[in-house]
Design a protein around this nucleic acid. Structure first.
Length: 259
DNA sequence: ATGGTAGCGAAGCTA
């Protein structure tokens, strides 16, 4: 089973690249974040035409939004609201005994201070996810993936020192993410395939003249699996080259193949 | 310290 996660930053603006990604990789399931589209105008037919007949999505006008695009029928689907907001940052899908959660964690604004409402939202969101995961049984087949908007390791950013006080890499956020990983009994499967101290990024800002040359990236996008799935994982690949495609997202897709 | 770019939707917010 080949699964892709991608913050596409606008499903309409990115549709040609989604088609190209499908053509190149032929995935079974695609999880998207930042679809930026209301449910009533979601391009379902376009995906049916590509052979993906099983869709589940939750979006709002202009912001946020997550989707699951699948060739394989799923047995259950749903979502949760976080921080008492209906801002479409989570869905889950279940294939038989395997549950997959697709998250779009709030970015957190520019100032890493609890008096900043956006940062406060990010922290409260993460605390709620942690509490939710801690109630799940330890042994289970589950994947958590998506844009978590945190680069936890020093080698997940271009400069650990220069980003220590930058939202996405502050010790406070990293601690919260670690807690969530442990509470959910997850493994950071991407780092099993891209070992420290290799620098690994999944996002490069639009605001640089040459993203590749300056290479000031961060690993904001993640795939976590429970222990039960670690040994079944055959391959993980970050599609860095997609950042260089025409009219790219600022994030790149990540692939996981499980047996 | 500042400003750089992109999507959505039609000005300004969010990232």
């Amino acid at each position: 089973m080949k699964i892709i996660t991608w913050n596409c930053n606008g499903i309409r603006a990115r549709f040609p690249l989604i088609e190209k990604l499908i053509e190149n990789e032929n995935p079974d399931v695609i999880f998207l974040q930042e679809t930026k589209i209301e449910d009533k105008i979601f391009p379902s037919k376009s995906f049916f035409d590509l052979g993906y007949n099983h869709l589940f999505f939750r979006g709002e006008k202009s912001y946020n939004g997550v989707a699951c695009i699948s060739r394989i029928p799923f047995d259950d689907s749903g979502y949760k609201n976080w921080s008492n907001l209906e801002d479409c940052r989570h869905i889950y899908i279940r294939f038989n005994e395997l549950t997959i959660n697709n998250f779009y964690v709030p970015a957190g604004g520019d100032i890493p201070d609890i008096n900043n409402d956006k940062f406060k939202h990010k922290v409260s969101f993460l605390l709620e996810v942690e509490s939710w995961l801690s109630k799940k049984p330890t042994q289970r087949k589950e994947i958590l993936l998506g844009d978590l908007n945190i680069a936890p390791l020093p080698d997940d950013v271009w400069s650990h020192k220069q980003l220590l006080n930058v939202v996405s890499h502050t010790p406070q956020e990293v601690q919260l993410l670690d807690k969530i990983l442990i509470s959910g009994n997850f493994t950071d499967i991407v780092r099993k395939f891209y070992k420290v101290p290799e620098k690994v990024f999944s996002w490069w800002s639009y605001r640089s003249k040459d993203w590749k040359l300056s290479n000031r990236g961060r690993r904001l996008d993640h795939i976590w699996t429970t222990k039960e799935i670690v040994s079944q994982t055959k391959k993980v690949k970050i599609l860095k080259e997609v950042r260089g495609w025409e009219k790219p997202s600022d994030h790149v897709p990540i692939i996981i193949e499980i047996d």
